[in-house]
């Protein structure tokens, strides 16, 4: 495969792996926030910010972890036929159907970007008493969608390499 494609795959995979590994530890942030929520409720005043920040963390967890999950092959597929195919045949099918994945992610990104711009234009805040700005979480989501698109393209390159019987170095 051409050098720039190999470099693309190497860098995108490595970057997404790092982001995903960071997101992975997000579960402890969620646990921490929720534990604080029950402690503060029991012993002091209930916190205004806990539930909502846990929700933001949850979104960051699965959106930023999305590309790494693709790498880990964690996304379930209906393997009625797929399960019996050879790796090359799978790669052939994936090389076409991955465009549906990319298309879906692109549509998400478009909507996310529009929503992010709205948040900037109007200084949008959450409707809760805590009233956090909403642009940061939307920015995180858009970033996650972009990285997933880049990851999907990387998967495509890997499939093409497999079909051509060459390695990506």
């Amino acid at each position: 495969m051409p050098g720039f494609i190999c470099a693309y795959v190497t860098y995108v995979d490595a970057f997404n792996r790092r982001i995903g590994r960071l997101a992975m530890y997000g579960i402890f942030l969620m646990v921490g926030v929720l534990m604080w929520s029950s402690i503060s409720k029991t012993f002091f005043m209930p916190s205004l910010w806990t539930l909502e920040s846990a929700q933001f963390l949850m979104v960051a967890y699965y959106v930023l972890g999305g590309a790494y999950a693709i790498q880990l092959n964690a996304n379930v597929r209906m393997d009625l036929f797929y399960g019996n195919w050879s790796p090359v045949k799978r790669a052939w099918f994936d090389a076409f159907t991955v465009f549906f994945l990319i298309f879906y992610l692109a549509v998400l990104l478009y909507g996310g970007f529009e929503s992010l711009m709205y948040s900037f234009d109007y200084g949008q805040r959450s409707r809760t008493a805590w009233r956090p700005y909403l642009w940061p979480i939307k920015a995180v989501m858009c970033f996650g969608f972009v990285m997933m698109i880049l990851q999907a393209i990387s998967q495509l390159f890997k499939d093409i390499a497999l079909i051509r019987g060459v390695a990506i170095k």
């Binding site: 379930v76 597929r77 209906m78 036929f81 399960g83 195919w85 799978r90 099918f93 159907t97 994945l101």
Partner: peptide, 8 residues
């Protein structure tokens, strides 16, 4: 049925 990821 093509085996693409279910969510996609």
């Amino acid at each position: 049925a093509t085996g693409q990821r279910v969510f996609a």
